[in-house]
């Protein structure tokens, strides 16, 4: 009881201090705040991105341009973080052999007419919905530099469509389409695509992930289009990794690492 009182006091004081700090912020969307207008005569970085991104890269979605090009190094290691999270869950949960037999859970199959009806309704709905979800995911990835979206979002939606297969039928049905070997390979290939774009720039004697020089390889008219196409390339790499890791996490969590039966 006493700890709860102290915890409440600590939370209230910390929250009060944070709110007090927020009251010093410039108003939301204030064009004269230092972040938007710059300090003195210096141009701020957001002004640079808003005015120069389209000239530099021919990409209308500034957010994607900043993430995949100007801060490409950061995004590459975000992808590595997702990969590491998936591998950590895999390393902790995955079991094989005799231990797998012991931990395997066999869900009671509802063979009554009631269960049959449920399977028909859920199965038919998912069979119609899943292709639409997957097409939308591919659109989000491919159109990420022209509209909201990109590799992360598209990858999560594509991974969710495989999770939907696993939930509507069972995990074995999903693993037949997207096996363990496939998703582990795909997760590595995604990061290699991203790092490959960076290394290719280095081979052409530019900085890591400085896409402009790739016009020599991609045969575009000028460095701007090369940067645009390279962004699409690295987004595809991110989408590969995220799709594979999302499904890997679900498959291992739902079946306790046995990869059989599942929920």
């Amino acid at each position: 009881m006493l700890t709860k009182v102290f915890a409440t006091i600590a939370v209230v004081i910390t929250g009060g201090l944070l709110l007090y700090g927020v009251s010093d912020f410039p108003a939301f969307g204030d064009p004269h705040s230092p972040a938007n207008a710059g300090v003195g005569n210096e141009e701020s970085i957001s002004q640079y991105f808003i005015t120069q991104t389209y000239k530099d890269t021919k990409v209308p979605n500034i957010v994607t341009a900043v993430l995949a090009d100007y801060r490409g190094y950061d995004t590459m290691f975000e992808t590595v973080v997702i990969f590491a999270a998936g591998i950590a869950i895999f390393a902790i949960l995955r079991v094989t052999g005799n231990e797998a037999e012991k931990k395997s859970i066999k869900p009671p199959l509802d063979s009554s007419i009631n269960g049959d009806h449920q399977r028909i309704i859920v199965g038919t709905t998912c069979r119609i919905v899943i292709p639409v979800v997957q097409m939308f995911a591919l659109y989000v990835v491919a159109h990420g530099h022209h509209s909201p979206g990109g590799g992360f979002q598209g990858g999560v939606i594509l991974g969710a469509s495989f999770i939907l297969v696993a939930m509507s039928e069972d995990l074995n049905a999903a693993l037949r389409r997207f096996s363990e070997k496939t998703y582990l390979t795909l997760a590595c290939v995604g990061i290699l695509i991203y790092a490959g774009f960076g290394l290719m720039c280095q081979f052409l004697e530019r900085n890591f992930l400085d896409y402009g020089i790739l016009q020599k390889v991609l045969f575009t008219d000028g460095p701007e289009m090369a940067r645009s196409h390279s962004m699409l390339g690295v987004e595809v790499g991110v989408a590969f990794t995220v799709t594979a890791i999302m499904f890997a996490i679900y498959a291992n969590l739902s079946s306790r690492g046995v990869l059989k039966n599942g929920l």
Binding site: T64, V140, G150, F152, Q153, V156, I157, G159, A160, Y250
Partner: peptide, 16 residues
């Protein structure tokens, strides 16, 4: 873009 990520990750996959 942030809203899209949150809808896919926060509301969708993490709940699953």
């Amino acid at each position: 873009d942030v809203a899209f990520t949150e809808a896919a990750v926060g509301a969708g996959v993490s709940a699953v």
